[in-house]
């Protein structure tokens, strides 16, 4: 599960978001939509821990996969300076990805900010006749990969908080309008917690199943250290589940949002 992947291509998507295309047969051959990799940003003690980053796209023919990340701190800053030909120490693919039910005819992916990236491979892999993507961004400057998402969805709707691009409003507002027009079979969320919380509640109202992909600060990334937990329903009580190993994708109804 631990290997070295070669950087094939790097691409800056906007002022602080980067895409890396990595070559690794081991990972590309078995990675599923919604899984992640845990990688070292540098040697030595700087940015000591690995960084968990979700898999954006897999190219199984070329044995490559893409990850997209936003520069947030030291680790991602170092990662943004990596160049083609460099090698990265990667563990993966890790975690439980999205569930694809190919009897579904209409699916919606609803993503916000950097949460849109793991939804991309899901759109690629799903065989539903109708695939709607609703992507939310802060403003026009943050909109990325529009053409790529358009290519792999039957309908792409972009929402911005300030209305500087696409529809003004939140992803969940757009989602409700879609549902009122035509009820999808399944919805997949990845984005800010408040968006997913609102989204899950909305779908429960319309009785539509959904999955959410969660994020938390991680330690080992494989389920041993128990640091990246989230509250999940268990019988009549609740428990902490491990986002890295039991998730990052969970059924919407199982999550207790605080």
């Amino acid at each position: 599960m631990r290997s070295f992947a070669t950087v094939k291509k790097t691409r800056q998507l906007n002022h602080d978001t980067f895409l890396l295309c990595l070559k690794s047969e081991k990972i590309a051959s078995c990675a599923e939509a919604g899984q992640f990799v845990n990688l070292k940003c540098c040697d030595g003690l700087d940015a000591y821990l690995r960084r968990p980053i979700s898999i954006h796209s897999v190219n199984r023919e070329c044995n490559t996969f893409d990850i997209v990340f936003q520069v947030r701190g030291k680790g991602t800053s170092l990662l943004s300076r990596i160049r083609p030909g460099d090698e990265i120490d990667v563990i993966g693919p890790l975690g439980r990805g999205f569930t694809l039910d190919h009897s579904h005819r209409h699916i919606v992916v609803a993503g916000g900010g950097i949460g849109i990236f793991p939804l991309f491979q899901l759109l690629k892999d799903h065989t539903a006749a109708k695939k709607t993507a609703v992507l939310g961004f802060r403003s026009k400057d943050f909109v990325v990969l529009e053409d790529e998402f358009k290519k792999h969805s039957t309908e792409l709707l972009i929402a911005t908080d300030d209305g500087s691009y696409g529809i003004k409003g939140f992803v969940t507002d757009v989602l409700e309008k879609i549902i009122q027009k035509e009820k999808p079979d399944m919805v997949y969320f990845c984005g800010p917690e408040v968006m997913m919380k609102t989204g899950v509640k909305l779908l429960q109202k319309y009785n539509i199943p959904c999955e959410v992909s969660l994020e938390q600060r991680m330690g080992c990334g494989i389920g041993a250290c128990l640091v990246c937990v989230c509250k999940t329903r268990k019988d009549n009580d609740w428990d902490y589940s491990r986002i890295c190993a039991d998730g990052p994708v969970f059924k919407g109804e199982d999550i207790i949002f605080d």
Binding site: Y48, L49, R217, G219, Y240
Partner: peptide, 20 residues
């Protein structure tokens, strides 16, 4: 035992803090 609420980890120079 359920343990403490998350976040339970913070990276620090050359180490980590945990509060599992």
């Amino acid at each position: 035992r359920k343990g403490n609420p998350p976040p339970r980890i913070a990276e620090t120079p050359g180490g980590i803090l945990n509060s599992v």
